[in-house]
Design a binder for these strands. Structure first.
Length: 578
RNA sequence: UACCCCGUGGUGUAACGGUAACACAAGUGGUUUUGGUCCAUUCAUUCCAGGUUCGAAUCCUGGCGGGGUAACCA
C-alpha cells in the first residue's frame, strides 16, 4: 500500500451469484465472518458429473474465502444405502482433487436430532400421527386445494412424548405412525402441510445397525446436521427451493447452535447423457453398461476409466458457471476441457487402428532404421524417443484411397506423402482382396534423402501420415467409445416411452487388432497418450497390463478433414427442442 | 388450475441503470512434419408490451414461455 501505481486494476473477477452472496455475508460479518460448506451425498449411488459440479462449487468457495468444507453422508434412509457407496464416494472426491475438513455422517447425529424432536413436541410444534401413507395423502390436499388437519393433530404434549418414545423403542409396526411438524395444512407450499419428521423403519442401518427403529426425513435432518456442523452456507440444487421455508422452520424452532442459510443453484445437465441417480442405477442394474465404472457413463469412476483427468473435470466445472437458469451444457464442452488438458500433458505415439500393409519396394529387406520422434510438441521437456522403421509397415486404411479427391492430402496411387518422422514415400501400386474387393496391400518407394521427414531439394508434400513397423508392432485391442445415447436430450421421449429407447447402439466399438508402436506396450494402466492424428487414449485401468495393453479412447482429436468431406452432403437443419 | 424459481448470440456464463463481454460451437483466413495445437477474423440491440428515467439487459406493471412442487426418497 506504500506505492500506488498507475497500473490499471486487474480485471474484476467474475463472481457467480453464490460467491457474491457469500462475499456479502462475510463483509457484513454474518456467521462471524466464517465460510463453512459441505458436500452432502446420500450413499445410495456413485458420484457423477453433476456431483462434480457441486463438489467444485462447495470446495472452491472455501478456497476463495478461506473457509472449510465437510464431507457429510446424508444417510437417513437405510433401505437404499450401503458402505460400497460410502467408499466409492470418498475415493471419487479425493480423486477429483479435494480434501474435506471433517467427515460426518447424518447418522452420527441421530441422537441430537432425536432430542430436537422432543423439543419440538414439548413446544407443541410436532405431533405423532397415526395416519397411514394413503390417508395422509388424502388429507394433504392438492396443489390447488388446501389440506385438512389430521385427527391426531390435537394430541397433548405428554401423549406425543410418550408415543414418540415408544416409536423409538420399536413398539409399533413399520409405517404405523409418524412424527409430523405442526405447521399449516392450508399452506400453498406443500412442504409446509405438516411434513413428516420421523418415520418408523424396522431396517438396520449400515452404520448404526439396529439401534434405531425410527429415521429422520431429509427435510428434518438436513438443516439440523448443517447447524450442528456449523455450516454457514448450505448449497443445494433448485428442486429444494420450495423446501427452504421448511429448512428455515426447523432451523429456527430448534435450539441449534448455528443458523445456516440454504442457497439453491441449477443442477447440471449435459447433452447425450443422463445425470440422474435413478436412471444411472437402471443402466447399471439392467446391464446396459458393464458397471458403475463403464467408460461411457458420466459417473466419476466411469470418466476416470475413460481417461478423464481430475484437472479437466475441474476446468469443465469452472467454465460452465453457476446460475439458477435451467440449462444443458453441450457435451463438447466436456470433451474440450479434456483435450485442453491432455494436449499439454499427454505423450504422443503412433498407433494404427485399422491396419493396411504398406511395402516399400526399394527399402532393404531385413534392415531396421531407428528414427527420432518427438514425444510432445507442446512440451519440449518431454524429449524424444526412437521408433523402428522397416520394409513392411502398417498404415491407416483411411490414409489410402484408390480414387482420391483433389483435396485428399494422404496416400493415393502416384501421390507422395510423408511418413511421420521417417521418409517421403510414393504409392506405386496396390492389390485388392478378391473376396472383399478391399485394398489389401499398397506398394510404394521411398526417398532415402528424406530421412527425418524433410527433402533436401525443398520439395513439399501436403500430407503426413502415421505408421508402425509390422515386424515391431504390438497387437492390442482398442475400444472406441461414442455417446451412450444417440439423442441430444435422452430424456425427451414420446409419450409412454422410456429413455432407454435413445441408447446409442454404437456407443462401443472394439478394434481387436490395432497395431501400436513398441513403446506403447509398457504403458502403465491409467496412463494417457495421444495416438497421433486419432485422439487421446488411456491404458485401461482394469484390463491393461504391461506387455499386453488395452486402450480406451478418451476423446478423439478435432477432425477437420471429416468436416470437409461431409460438406457437399449439405448440412441438415438444426434439430430444436420442442 | 395454486405457489416458488427462471428467461441475454447455436450452447452456456458476464455486464450490479450509462450505449452487450468471455468461453465453446459455426464460418473465413494464416501457420504447421498430427487435416491436432496455435494465431487472426465474422456471427446477439438482451421473450413481448407498457411504464419510470436524460439514459433500461438491468427498476416497476402486465402478458408469454420454460422449470419445480401433491414419497413415511434425497
Amino acid at each position: 500500500m506504500s506505492a500506488p501505481h498507475a497500473t490499471p486494476e486487474p480485471a474484476a473477477e467474475r463472481l457467480h451469484f453464490i460467491e457474491e452472496r457469500v462475499q456479502a455475508d462475510v463483509a457484513q460479518g454474518l456467521h462471524g465472518g466464517r465460510v463453512h460448506t459441505r458436500f452432502p451425498p446420500e450413499p445410495n449411488g456413485y458420484l457423477h458429473l453433476g456431483h462434480a459440479k457441486s463438489i467444485c462449487l462447495n470446495f472452491s468457495l472455501t478456497q476463495r474465502f478461506g473457509g472449510r468444507c465437510n464431507l457429510r453422508f446424508d444417510d437417513t434412509n437405510p433401505t437404499t444405502e450401503s458402505v460400497e457407496y460410502v467408499e466409492s464416494i470418498q475415493r471419487d472426491v479425493k480423486w477429483l482433487g479435494f480434501e474435506w475438513n471433517e467427515l460426518y455422517f447424518a447418522s452420527g447425529f441421530f441422537e441430537s436430532i432425536y432430542e430436537f424432536a422432543e423439543e419440538l413436541v414439548r413446544k407443541g410444534l410436532a405431533y405423532v400421527c397415526d395416519l397411514d401413507a394413503e390417508a395422509m395423502r388424502e388429507l394433504r390436499g392438492t396443489l390447488t386445494a388446501p389440506g385438512k388437519p389430521s385427527p391426531f393433530r390435537g394430541r397433548s404434549v405428554d401423549e406425543n412424548l410418550d408415543l414418540l418414545r415408544r416409536m423409538r423403542a420399536g413398539e409399533f409396526a413399520e409405517g404405523a405412525r409418524t412424527l409430523r411438524a405442526k405447521i399449516d395444512m392450508a399452506s400453498p407450499n406443500m412442504n409446509m402441510r405438516d411434513p413428516v419428521l420421523y418415520r418408523i423403519l424396522h431396517a438396520d442401518h449400515h452404520r448404526t445397525g439396529s439401534a434405531w427403529r425410527i429415521y429422520p426425513t431429509y427435510d428434518y435432518a438436513h438443516p439440523l446436521c448443517d447447524a450442528l456442523e456449523g455450516i454457514t452456507h448450505s448449497i443445494c440444487t433448485l428442486e429444494f427451493e420450495n423446501h427452504r421455508p421448511l429448512y428455515d422452520w426447523v432451523r429456527d424452532n430448534c435450539s441449534t447452535p448455528h443458523k445456516p442459510e440454504q442457497i439453491e443453484f441449477a443442477r447440471l445437465n449435459v447433452t447425450y447423457t443422463v445425470l440422474s441417480k435413478r436412471k444411472l442405477l437402471r443402466l447399471v442394474n439392467e446391464k446396459h453398461v458393464s458397471g458403475w465404472d463403464d467408460p461411457r457413463l458420466p459417473t466419476l469412476s466411469g470418466l476416470r476409466r475413460r481417461g478423464y483427468t481430475p484437472s479437466a473435470l475441474r476446468t469443465f466445472c469452472e467454465r460452465i458457471g453457476v446460475a439458477k437458469f435451467n440449462s444443458t451444457i453441450d457435451v463438447v464442452q466436456l470433451e474440450n476441457a479434456l483435450r485442453d488438458d491432455l494436449n499439454k500433458t499427454a505423450p504422443r505415439a503412433m498407433a494404427v487402428l485399422r491396419p493396411l500393409r504398406l511395402v516399400i519396394e526399394n527399402f532393404p529387406e531385413g534392415e531396421v532404421d531407428e528414427l527420432e520422434a518427438v514425444n510432445n510438441p507442446e512440451d519440449p521437456a518431454a524429449g524424444s524417443r526412437k521408433v523402428p522403421f522397416s520394409k513392411v509397415l502398417y498404415i491407416e486404411r483411411d490414409d489410402f484411397r484408390v480414387d482420391a479427391p483433389k483435396d485428399f492430402f494422404r496416400l493415393a496411387p502416384g501421390k507422395e506423402v510423408r511418413l511421420r518422422y521417417a521418409y517421403f514415400v510414393t504409392a506405386k501400386s496396390f492389390t485388392l482382396d478378391p473376396a472383399t474387393g478391399e485394398v489389401s496391400e499398397v506398394v510404394c518407394t521411398y526417398d532415402p534423402a528424406t530421412r527425418g521427414g524433410n527433402a533436401p531439394d525443398g520439395r513439399k508434400v501436403k500430407g503426413t501420415i502415421h505408421w508402425v513397423s509390422a515386424a515391431h508392432a504390438v497387437n492390442a485391442p482398442v475400444r472406441l467409445y461414442d455417446h451412450l445415447f444417440a439423442a441430444e436430450f435422452p430424456e425427451e421421449v414420446p409419450e409412454g416411452q422410456d429413455f432407454l429407447v435413445n441408447l446409442n447402439p454404437k456407443s462401443l466399438e472394439v478394434l481387436p487388432n490395432a497395431q501400436l508402436e513398441p513403446s506403447l506396450a509398457q504403458l502403465a494402466p491409467g496412463k494417457s497418450v495421444q495416438f497421433e492424428r486419432h485422439g487421446y487414449f488411456v491404458a485401461d485401468a482394469l484390463d491393461s497390463r504391461p506387455g499386453a495393453p488395452v486402450f480406451n479412447r478418451s476423446v478423439a482429436l478435432r477432425d477437420s478433414w471429416a468436416k470437409i468431406e461431409k460438406k457437399p452432403a449439405n448440412a441438415k437443419p438444426a434439430s430444436g427442442r420442442k
